[in-house]
């Protein structure tokens, strides 16, 4: 094939996706950056450049630092605990030899992930409610007073627990698939050498799984950073601003205060971390390939 036809063919194949993403992704993305640098005069109906004014306004608002802090707090705690829990699930299921119980447990573990986040949030809202909530029943049993948890300062942490409940199966699925692909010969060899199962995991299995773990962690971090549904449905960012993250404030500014310009500025700010993480992930995979 001639070089020219080669490239022509490639772009011909790519045409549908390029067109589609140009309209529904790149154009809105451009609009986002444009809006974040402008202001709209509703009386004169003109849009004019104001430079970085929106960003300056955002950073002059002391609340913004709280949003940023909470976004990373949420991501950090949820990713860390989901990862531990997901890995524990995977090891547990992996160590069950009976085929039936194995399948059954897998179905049970995966279920929360398959409930739509909005529904999961509703369920947990109920579990946390003052009069009917089981969380309160159990805590009362241990002598802790009933409380309307989603209106308390702990609301944010309960949302995190819901997120862990809902999406740790994701880590489980990935880690379990990876465990199943381990070569049996290595495991046998380590057993012959007399490794106990703790040692087997620490020194044999985990080092082999390290690349998968890094991928799983990266994907999970990006997914958790995006978290919106659970927070929005359970607390709506409240009480006060105590569970408002960058995602929530971007949404609220646009859809409730109808301030598209400021919302776009928040949007640009929100985007920075995932972009950075994605790029460093790409660099990491490239470096690994050359090793």
């Amino acid at each position: 094939m001639k070089q020219k036809t080669y490239y022509f063919l490639f772009f011909l194949f790519l045409l549908p996706v390029i067109l589609y993403l140009a309209i529904f992704f790149i154009y809105p993305l451009g609009l986002l950056f444009y809006y974040s640098l402008t202001e709209f005069d509703y009386k004169a109906k003109v849009r004019y450049f104001v430079g970085l004014k929106n960003f300056v306004e955002i950073f002059q608002d002391p609340e913004t630092y709280g949003y940023i802090f909470r976004t990373f707090l949420y991501t950090g705690i949820v990713v860390f605990l989901s990862f531990i829990l997901g890995l524990a699930y995977a090891i547990l299921v992996y160590s069950i030899k009976s085929k039936l119980i194995n399948t059954l447990l897998r179905i049970i573990i995966v279920t929360p992930m398959l409930i739509m986040p909005v529904a999961g949030a509703t369920i947990w809202r109920f579990l946390l409610s003052m009069h009917y909530g089981w969380i309160n029943f159990i805590l009362e049993f241990f002598g802790i007073q009933r409380e309307n948890w989603l209106l308390s300062p702990y609301a944010f942490y309960w949302v995190m627990i819901t997120d862990i409940w809902g999406w740790s199966p994701y880590i489980f699925l990935i880690m379990y698939a990876a465990l199943q692909q381990l070569p049996q010969s290595i495991l046998d060899a380590s057993e012959i050498d007399g490794a106990t199962s703790t040692k087997k995991y620490m020194y044999v299995i985990f080092p082999i799984l390290k690349p998968v773990m890094i991928i799983a962690l990266t994907l999970k971090t990006l997914d958790t950073y995006r978290a919106f549904d659970y927070i929005w449905v359970m607390t709506g960012g409240g009480p006060g601003h105590s569970s408002t993250t960058l995602n929530i404030i971007t949404y609220i500014t646009a859809m409730q205060y109808l301030n598209f310009e400021k919302s776009s500025a928040y949007g640009v700010l929100t985007m920075l971390f995932p972009l950075f993480l994605t790029l460093s992930f790409l660099v990491y995979t490239r470096v690994r390939k050359f090793e």
């Binding site: 993403l21 992704f25 154009y27 809105p28 993305l29 609009l31 986002l32 809006y35 990006l222 950073y225 995006r226 919106f228 995602n247 971007t250 949404y251 646009a254 859809m255 598209f260 310009e261 919302s263 776009s264 928040y266 949007g267 640009v268 929100t270 985007m271 995932p274 972009l275 993480l277 994605t278």
Partner: peptide
Amino acid sequence: VRMIPFVTLVAPYFVM
């Protein structure tokens, strides 16, 4: 496309 939080595009999407 997949990695950026989609909620950031709320305003442009709504207008568009």
